[in-house]
Design a protein around this nucleic acid. Structure first.
Lengths: 122, 122
DNA sequence: AGCTATGCTTTGACAATCTAGGTATCGGCT
DNA sequence: AGCCGATACCTAGATTGTCAAAGCATAGCT
């Protein structure tokens, strides 16, 4: 009994998505960039594709996050034109960014483990 | 080379902890209560203990969260005196709370899976 | 000409957590 | 008796990150 009103459809779809938790976005962005230089819009697509459509990063989340991340020196940015002839801002992981990715992945693993411990309690 | 100044000790300890991500606290509280009725302070201890000291819920996080959760009907509360003769507010999972716990666990699993997919990309 | 997808940006709202304070009782130690 | 740490609850304010919702611009397709 899926509702047909388009507004409800969106809600329905949204419920299929895993909501992002605060703190996970940076890791995802860094991970996406670890696979190669990319522009903002492409990062969104890459994350969505890699996660089998389970994760959808909003533009309003991504761009501020990219700005934060750049300020911290984890990525460097440059404007360039790509194949299609369109201009875009390309981001690249710095060495510090690669290190940060490791740190965040370790933190994530620790959290997942800790929560698993709590959950397996009977 | 662990610093000895007590303020720094705390910081040191804090860095060993997995930081809580927004959205996980409710699940942890509900899970803790699924093991049996408990009061606020006890919930903190139970979560810390079950997670092998990896998770430390702050009081300033817990009590507002408990209030939220109670408002949503996921727990019921009553004041009582426990063994030690001290008064405390005991929380109990409601049926809706048990359902909510399942929902949140499923959501958590979905998120962990989705992030794992992104992370395993080469 | 209009629509969709691409691409970047900004604003404001919102929600959750943490820091830091407050109150009070209890037991153990000196 | 006095002190202190642990227990137990509560609240205010700051911070942070995400999202919703706009706006702007271009390319390609119909």
């Amino acid at each position: 009994m899926m509702p047909t009103d388009s507004r409800y459809e969106e809600i329905y779809v949204a419920k299929n998505k895993a909501e992002l938790l605060q703190g996970t976005l940076d890791m995802l962005i860094l991970k996406a960039l670890s696979l190669g230089e990319l522009h903002g819009y492409g990062i969104i697509q890459r994350i969505r594709q890699l996660s089998d459509e389970m994760l959808n990063v909003e533009q309003g989340s991504l761009y501020p996050a990219l700005y934060r991340i750049e300020q911290k020196g984890w990525v460097s940015a440059r404007w360039d034109v790509h194949d299609t002839g369109r201009e875009a801002k390309f981001y690249k992981l710095t060495r510090a960014g690669r290190k940060q990715l490791e740190t965040e992945e370790a933190g994530w693993d620790r959290l997942v483990l800790a929560i698993a411990k709590v959950r397996q309690a009977t």
